[in-house]
Simulated scan of single mutants.
Amino acid sequence: MTQGLARPETGAGDSGDYVARARDIAPIINAEADGMEDLRGVSPAVVAALREQRIFWMLVPREWGGGGLGIVETFKVIEELARADGSTGWVMMANVSGTGVAAGYLGDAGARVLFAGPDKGIIAGMFLPVGRGVRVEGGYRVTGKYGFASGSGHASWMGAGFAVYDEDGNPETSVDGSPVHRLGFVPRDEVKFLGGWNVMGMVATGSDDYSVTEVFVPEARTMDTFSTTPVRSEAVYSLGLVAMAVGGHGPVALGIARRALEEVAHIAAVKTRPGYPSVIGDNDMFRREFATHEALLQAARRYVYEVCAEAEAQAAAGGVSDVQRARLRQAVTWVVGVARDIVNWAFNWGGSASIRNPSVLGRCLRDISVGATHMMVEPMTMVEAAGPILATYLED
């Protein structure tokens, strides 16, 4: 029997426990959601609930007090949070993937500073190497301006990607001639926050700009920006930085689309329109379209989690294939498009209930519209994914 989307099935590990935790705090998120748009960030009450339920550290190893979850289990929790509020789901995608990258790819000494103690770090920030780091004794002097720091309002550590230069100002290169890029983690009190997040959707993500100026970052708190070789043995880290960072867009979109269907179903149960003999929920056209869009969401959800599960299984067996990495990009980009279409459909059927603030459907539309413009899910990702996938159709 097919399960309804309001209750996603749980997988292996502790996902059932963590999904239940996300559901437990959903009422708090719902109550805070409209105010968080005015705040332009996740509210202290929601942050406190996420901390209490240990959700920030789902991808941190269990030996350091984290959840030790796999990628599928983690994404199901993010989906549930996005169902409550798109911005909250997005922030958790950013914070959780950031902590996962640091835990899995940062050297053991640096990662323990961030996560092994009782006051575990929360990561936010830009990992791309847009800054400049001068190599000095014991580490780097880093300067740079960064943007799109989702979840920075409550983060304790900020990522700062940089290209490496020597003390004479010459860029360092690796043996193959490519530039040396590093990612450093900087304590919050050494970062200057610049604001700048004035947008139409995903408002409460607080994705502000920030800068660092001549900040010393010890070598132990840096890692190769584009590393695909984790320092830990858990399969989830072998998925690579791109898979961990990109994949989370899928469950955010799923959660927003699920919420939009729930909202329009409740609206349709009581809403009347001129020319309709009864409430619009009794209308054959509405019912046919609802069933069609709900089927699309069911299919998209299953494909996303199937692809993620297969990639994690390959990682556990020794390595993720190029085809599977391509399918990850394909699945995530596709599901965001599906979710956007579902939300648009629900918003239109909501009529005046969609446009009168506060409106959950209005927030869903704004959030999915902004989320769908992200560079990680823009149309060129499908072009890039097509090569390896197309090749499988040309095999004998």
Results as ranks from 00 to 15, higher is better:
Ala12Pro: 09
Asp14Leu: 02
Asp17Trp: 11
Tyr18Ala: 13
Ala20Val: 11
Arg21Asp: 13
Arg23Met: 10
Ile28His: 09
Ile28Phe: 11
Gly35Glu: 07
Glu37Val: 14
Asp38His: 12
Ser43Gln: 05
Pro44Ser: 00
Leu50His: 09
Arg54Leu: 01
Val60Pro: 07
Leu69Val: 04
Thr74Ala: 12
Lys76Leu: 15
Glu79Phe: 06
Glu80Thr: 15
Asp85Ile: 04
Thr88Lys: 09
Trp90Gln: 11
Met92Ala: 02
Met92Leu: 12
Met93Gln: 14
Asn95Leu: 02
Ser97His: 09
Tyr105Met: 07
Phe115Ser: 10
Asp119Lys: 13
Gly121Ile: 04
Gly125Val: 05
Leu128Glu: 15
Gly131Trp: 07
Gly131Asp: 08
Gly133Glu: 03
Val136Ile: 07
Arg141Tyr: 00
Arg141Met: 05
Gly144Met: 03
Ser150Tyr: 10
Ser150Ala: 15
Ser150Asp: 14
Gly151Glu: 03
Gly153Leu: 10
Glu167Trp: 00
Glu172Gly: 00
His181Tyr: 11
Gly184Asp: 09
Pro187Glu: 08
Asp189Cys: 03
Glu190Ala: 13
Lys192His: 12
Leu194Cys: 12
Val199Glu: 15
Gly201Asn: 11
Met202Phe: 07
Met202His: 08
Thr205Ile: 09
Thr205Lys: 02
Ser207Phe: 06
Val212Arg: 06
Glu214Asp: 13
Pro218Trp: 01
Glu219Thr: 05
Met223Cys: 13
Asp224Gly: 01
Phe226Asn: 14
Gly250Asp: 02
Val252Trp: 03
Val252Phe: 03
Gly255His: 08
Arg258Thr: 12
Arg259Gln: 08
Glu262Ala: 01
Ala268Met: 15
Ala269Glu: 11
Val279Arg: 07
Gly281Glu: 00
Phe290Tyr: 08
Ala295Ser: 06
Leu296Cys: 09
Glu312Met: 05
Leu328Asn: 10
Val332Ile: 07
Thr333Pro: 10
Trp334Lys: 09
Val336Pro: 11
Gly350Tyr: 04
Ile355Asp: 00
Arg356Leu: 13
Ala372Ser: 12
Val377Lys: 04
Met382Asn: 13
Ile389Tyr: 11
Leu390Trp: 10
Thr392Arg: 12
Leu394Lys: 11
Glu395Ser: 08
Asp396Ala: 06
